[in-house]
Protein backbone atom coordinates (compact mmCIF):
# COMPACT_ATOMS: atom_id res chain seq x y z
CA UNK A 1 0.00 0.00 0.00
CA UNK A 2 1.24 3.46 -0.79
CA UNK A 3 -0.23 6.85 0.00
CA UNK A 4 -1.06 8.80 -3.13
CA UNK A 5 -1.49 12.56 -2.73
CA UNK A 6 -2.98 15.10 -5.12
CA UNK A 7 -2.57 18.85 -5.05
CA UNK A 8 -4.11 21.90 -6.73
CA UNK A 9 -6.16 21.13 -9.86
CA UNK A 10 -5.12 17.48 -9.80
CA UNK A 11 -6.81 17.22 -6.38
CA UNK A 12 -9.87 19.04 -7.70
CA UNK A 13 -10.21 16.86 -10.80
CA UNK A 14 -9.81 13.61 -8.90
CA UNK A 15 -11.97 14.86 -6.06
CA UNK A 16 -9.83 13.92 -3.09
CA UNK A 17 -6.52 15.01 -1.53
CA UNK A 18 -5.17 11.60 -0.56
CA UNK A 19 -5.87 7.90 -0.85
CA UNK A 20 -4.21 4.59 -0.20
CA UNK A 21 -3.51 2.54 -3.28
CA UNK A 22 -2.76 -1.15 -3.55
CA UNK A 23 -0.41 -1.44 -6.47
CA UNK A 24 2.20 -3.67 -8.00
CA UNK A 25 3.38 -0.94 -10.36
CA UNK A 26 7.15 -0.88 -10.81
CA UNK A 27 7.35 2.78 -11.80
CA UNK A 28 5.40 6.01 -11.38
CA UNK A 29 4.32 5.73 -15.03
CA UNK A 30 2.85 2.29 -14.39
CA UNK A 31 0.99 3.60 -11.35
CA UNK A 32 -0.40 6.40 -13.51
CA UNK A 33 -1.63 3.83 -16.06
CA UNK A 34 -3.38 1.90 -13.31
CA UNK A 35 -5.04 5.03 -11.98
CA UNK A 36 -6.10 6.13 -15.48
CA UNK A 37 -7.99 2.89 -15.97
CA UNK A 38 -9.99 3.32 -12.77
CA UNK A 39 -12.38 6.07 -13.73
CA UNK A 40 -12.89 8.95 -16.11
CA UNK A 41 -11.85 11.56 -13.52
CA UNK A 42 -8.42 9.90 -13.19
CA UNK A 43 -8.03 9.61 -16.94
CA UNK A 44 -8.84 13.31 -17.19
CA UNK A 45 -6.41 14.35 -14.45
CA UNK A 46 -3.60 12.29 -15.97
CA UNK A 47 -4.36 12.99 -19.62
CA UNK A 48 -1.20 15.07 -20.18
CA UNK A 49 1.81 14.12 -18.09
CA UNK A 50 3.76 17.09 -19.40
CA UNK A 51 1.42 19.25 -17.33
CA UNK A 52 2.21 17.28 -14.17
CA UNK A 53 5.03 16.87 -11.69
CA UNK A 54 5.61 13.98 -9.31
CA UNK A 55 7.35 13.53 -5.97
CA UNK A 56 8.24 10.26 -4.25
CA UNK A 57 8.56 10.52 -0.48
CA UNK A 58 8.60 14.33 -0.75
CA UNK A 59 11.41 14.49 -3.33
CA UNK A 60 10.76 15.65 -6.88
CA UNK A 61 11.39 12.90 -9.40
CA UNK A 62 10.53 11.75 -12.93
CA UNK A 63 7.69 9.57 -14.21
CA UNK A 64 10.06 6.73 -15.05
CA UNK A 65 11.29 6.56 -11.45
CA UNK A 66 11.00 3.17 -9.71
CA UNK A 67 8.38 2.81 -6.97
CA UNK A 68 10.22 0.16 -4.95
CA UNK A 69 10.21 1.15 -1.29
CA UNK A 70 8.12 4.27 -1.87
CA UNK A 71 5.68 5.19 0.90
CA UNK A 72 4.18 8.32 -0.58
CA UNK A 73 3.70 9.50 -4.15
CA UNK A 74 2.36 12.98 -4.87
CA UNK A 75 1.02 14.35 -8.16
CA UNK A 76 0.65 18.06 -8.82
CA UNK A 77 0.90 20.74 -11.50
CA UNK A 78 4.12 22.76 -11.96
CA UNK A 79 4.68 24.77 -8.79
CA UNK A 80 3.86 28.45 -8.53
CA UNK A 81 5.53 29.66 -5.35
CA UNK A 82 7.30 32.93 -4.62
Amino acid sequence: MIDVLYFAWVRERIGLPKEQVETSAATVAELVDELRQREERYALAFSDLRALRVAIDQELTEFDAPLAGAREVAFFPPMTGG
Binding site: F7, F76, P78, M79, T80, G81, G82
Partner: peptide, 13 residues
Protein backbone atom coordinates in the same frame (compact mmCIF):
# COMPACT_ATOMS: atom_id res chain seq x y z
CA UNK B 1 13.42 33.70 -5.67
CA UNK B 2 13.84 31.86 -8.97
CA UNK B 3 13.93 28.47 -7.28
CA UNK B 4 11.13 29.17 -4.80
CA UNK B 5 8.93 30.06 -7.75
CA UNK B 6 9.20 26.73 -9.51
CA UNK B 7 10.74 24.23 -7.08
CA UNK B 8 8.97 24.87 -3.77
CA UNK B 9 5.64 23.00 -3.57
CA UNK B 10 3.19 25.90 -3.53
CA UNK B 11 0.23 26.42 -5.87
CA UNK B 12 -1.56 29.73 -6.21
CA UNK B 13 -5.20 30.17 -7.06
Amino acid sequence: MDYLKSRAPFWKK
